[in-house]
């Protein structure tokens, strides 16, 4: 673990409203294939993608009531729009991603500079250990649920503990379509947790069930998980995710959540959805 910068002076965690980092999809498209969704993707409608991103932005700011910080898009970095992967944020610490695929590695120094300039204490992984930010590490109460094997190396989990002092529960991802843990598991307010049981092996399911009370667990069907139902943004009692998952909508409403469905079809072609397009800063 390499610590790059000292603590700055913009504590997002001290703000009244949650702050979420997003990156406009100015240069978003499917240029390469680094997951099964991209391999099968029909051509991306970039204008539609922009409208869908704006709808998500409005849902987050106006319906959920969060602030949004914008990361300037960069030509040639089409996946920069998926800010969730840039880092794991805990308090004022940003544990930076080190991407498995070379196609995304040019994002690393750009995002590192952004976090430094915005007052985060920045930590990075050694060259030989891959870690894909909040795509593969999700805070849940006093611990982290972290995925590994497809993109992130399990060795990174020890470095997460070193950086955050939080215990990390390592979950093997067994389905290449659920290549990050944030496409198959989502912690929610009040200790609830959405997850797709099919994305984990028996050990992973046992870990989840041992840590989350049964009444707080919300299993998602394979069919709805494939529509990225688990890739949700949660702000207070509002949960935002891609449209087309009626069972999850019903389950969440019955537990008192406000649900906002947004059409994010163009981003699904790239293997991402609502949560992938956001990074909670504080």
């Amino acid at each position: 673990m390499v610590w790059i910068s000292p603590v700055g002076n913009t504590p997002f965690s001290a703000k009244d409203k949650p702050t979420i980092l997003m990156c406009p999809p100015t240069y978003f498209t499917v240029e390469y294939a680094i997951n099964p969704w991209m391999e099968e993707a029909p051509p991306c409608d970039v204008d539609l993608a922009k409208r869908q991103w704006e709808a998500l932005y409005l849902a987050i700011t106006e319906q959920a009531g969060a602030d949004v910080e914008l990361l300037e898009p960069v030509k040639g970095l089409p996946d920069l729009v998926f800010t969730a992967n840039a880092a794991l944020i805990y308090d004022q610490v940003a544990v930076l991603a080190h991407y498995k695929h070379p196609e995304r590695r040019d994002e690393e120094p750009y995002c590192a500079r952004w976090f430094e300039q915005h007052g985060f204490q920045v930590a990075s992984m050694p060259e030989h250990i891959f870690f894909e930010g909040a795509g593969d590490a999700l805070l849940w109460q006093d611990r982290v649920f972290a995925g590994y094997k497809t993109r992130t190396d399990i060795a990174s989990h020890n470095l997460l503990t070193a950086a955050t002092s939080l215990p990390v529960l390592s979950l093997e991802l067994i389905n290449p379509r659920f290549y990050h843990v944030d496409v198959c598991l989502c912690p929610l307010a009040d200790g609830h947790l959405i997850y797709s049981p099919d994305a984990f092996d028996d050990y992973g399911r046992a870990v989840i069930e041992a840590n989350v009370p049964q009444e707080k667990l919300i299993p998602v069907s394979a069919e709805e998980a494939a529509r990225f139902a688990c890739n949700a943004v949660n702000v207070h009692d509002t949960v935002i995710f891609n449209q087309g998952s009626p069972q999850l909508v019903s389950d969440l409403k019955s537990r008192g959540f406000n649900v906002v469905e947004v059409d994010l079809s163009e981003f699904l072609k790239s293997g991402g959805s609502a949560k992938c397009l956001t990074l909670r800063l504080g």
């Binding site: 399990i154 989990h157 529960l169 390592s170 092996d201 050990y203 992973g204 870990v207």
Partner: peptide
């Protein structure tokens, strides 16, 4: 091996 090997059931696996 190093990590949360017991809580994550990594050792069992």
């Amino acid at each position: 091996l190093k990590g949360h090997l017991i809580d994550s059931l990594t050792l069992s696996k």
